[in-house]
Design a protein around this nucleic acid. Structure first.
Length: 464
RNA sequence: GGUCCCAUCGUCUAGUGGCCCAGGACGCCGCCCUCUCACGGCGGUAGCGAGGGUUCGAACCCCUCUGGGACCGCCA
């Protein structure tokens, strides 16, 4: 048995969330760093909201990011017998009780308490009902939590957090339909799977004392807990679907590389001196809980973009060419990952922050792109038209276009007096824009005939 | 409203009592490189939330305030 076992336990009710991905990553890294095991568990006790598509989405997202698990995925729905058995045990031992309060009654009481500015919670009125009193009525099983004393959560990141038991609730263990609730199954699962370190988001900190009490009631050994801060949206507050892309896969679709994503995520809340760039292997070697921050961090797209640009620059052009194909397809360009595409990609590597940007830039390699009227008016002037034609003629006479195009162009410039500004007009004629890779690189990719064709086409449009 | 957590440049962070009149990165600005854009190089901008302590000495320790956040469900 490894001395460290961590887990990621998402509920399959949507896509893999940015925050969830980081939680998974931290758990993976902590396990790896300590020679431990990382388990994936799907928390699907909420049958209303859980879907197989969401399970798929979570698995896909993790796989894409390279967050691999050693065991699982386990599904809670397959472990029902265990939960029922443990629930029965608590009931027999007098550590849980049947509660016949209806949802409506509970809601009404909660509202009253809120109106009185009290902390809304269960008042415990079914706690000491006579044994037969709940017979035949629909009921839930509640945990009989201690009313006095304190529960201490020993948190790896926050130190000891003390809760008054009087503040804690008699939480529901089994619903009316007999299905178990989150706080109950999470304890049973973590214990039965031998989880040694429960590392999760801050939003669970206030659940933890309730779970600690359950561990004690069930007679399980306590794991270590660690709660790290949440990731906030760009405008502050929770990540919101309106303002932020919360789904990991949305970033894949926008043309982010998984290694950029993971690198960005690991730096959100964790640091290692001044280092900014981390490979998965480095993270696994260096990660430690002591260097995880305690305050929430805001998601910052600019920095992600910068990291993505970095990784695109560093990547193998062949790989990027392959990844680029679907992005080109989205723009109606049917490109196979040919050597030619790789050559084109090579020219775009250091001027693209995402694959989407690269696909956009690459358009002129595949089809002529007309210049914007303003750009055309500035660079494709009537005076320049004959020069364009002259350059086209000079090019079309070349045997070895690649080797001689620069000289040929210079000769034309010399003939015209030497200080002719011809590069930008040619760039505009060829690419439709004023920004592109080096002119001669672009021309090499396009090839002599296409260059001549576009030059003549542009000159012709000036006349018209 | 109650309970709990948190607080260094706009943002991500380094910093665990003297090495810090606070370092790196993103962004932004300027310069250099240059056929454009980008890359790269160089330089700059900007911060310890406030007030009290403790100490010879505080970004680091304590208290109060302020601000932000989480949770309070038969959701997870």
């Amino acid at each position: 048995m490894p001395n460290v076992v961590t887990r990621f336990a998402p509920s399959p009710t949507g896509f893999l969330h940015i925050g969830g991905a980081r939680t998974a990553l931290f758990n993976l890294l902590y396990a790896r760093r300590n020679g431990g095991k990382f388990i994936l568990r799907i928390e699907d006790t909420d049958q209303e909201r859980s879907t197989p598509e969401a399970v798929r989405a979570i698995l896909d997202g993790m796989t894409w990011l390279g967050i691999t698990w050693d065991e699982g995925p386990h599904f809670q729905m397959e472990r029902m017998d265990l939960y029922r058995k443990e629930a029965g045990r608590l009931l027999r031992e007098g550590k849980a009780y049947r509660c016949v309060c209806t949802k409506e009654e509970l809601d009404a009481r909660r509202e009253e308490m809120t109106a009185r500015k009290e902390k809304p919670r269960y008042d415990g009125r079914c706690r000491d009902l006579a044994p037969g009193a709940t017979e035949g009525k629909p009921s839930v099983l509640r945990f009989k939590a201690p009313r006095t004393g304190q529960t201490v959560v020993r948190d790896l990141l926050r130190g000891d957090v003390v809760y008054e038991n009087a503040e804690l609730d008699d939480l529901v263990l089994l619903r009316t339909d007999g299905s178990p609730t989150y706080n109950f199954v999470v304890v049973i699962d973590d214990a039965s799977m031998g989880i040694t370190h429960v590392l999760r988001g801050d939003d669970h900190l206030n659940n933890t004392p309730k779970q600690v009490l359950l561990y004690e009631a069930l007679g399980y050994p306590l794991p270590r807990f660690g709660h790290f801060p949440l990731i906030h949206g760009m405008e502050g507050g929770k990540l919101s679907k309106r303002q932020d892309d919360v789904s990991v896969m949305a970033y894949r679709e926008k043309g982010f590389l998984p290694e950029a994503m993971v690198n960005y995520l690991v730096r959100l809340g964790w640091g290692h001196g001044d280092q900014e760039i981390f490979s998965m292997v480095e993270m696994q070697d260096l990660f430690s809980l002591e260097h995880v921050g305690k305050s929430p961090s805001k998601f910052n797209l600019d920095k992600l973009l910068h990291l993505n640009a970095h990784y695109i620059k560093m990547a193998e052009p062949e790989r990027i060419a392959n990844l680029l194909v679907p992005f080109l397809a989205k723009r109606g360009i049917d490109a196979k990952p040919l050597p030619w595409l790789t050559a084109a990609v090579r020219t775009l590597l250091e001027r693209s922050r995402t694959l989407e940007e690269m696909a956009e830039s690459a358009e002129y390699y595949f089809r002529p792109k007309p210049a914007e009227p303003k750009v055309a008016a500035k660079f494709l002037t009537p005076e320049i038209a004959p020069v364009l034609l002259e350059v086209a003629d000079a090019f079309s006479a070349l045997e070895d276009f690649k080797a001689d195009m620069e000289d040929a162009l210079n000769e034309v410039v010399e003939r015209r007096g030497g200080n002719l500004k011809i590069h930008q007009p040619i760039r505009v004629a060829l690419t439709g824009g004023t920004a592109s890779p080096g002119l001669f690189e672009v021309m090499e990719i396009l090839g002599r005939d296409e260059v001549v064709r576009r030059l003549r086409g542009a000159a012709g449009r000036i006349g018209a």
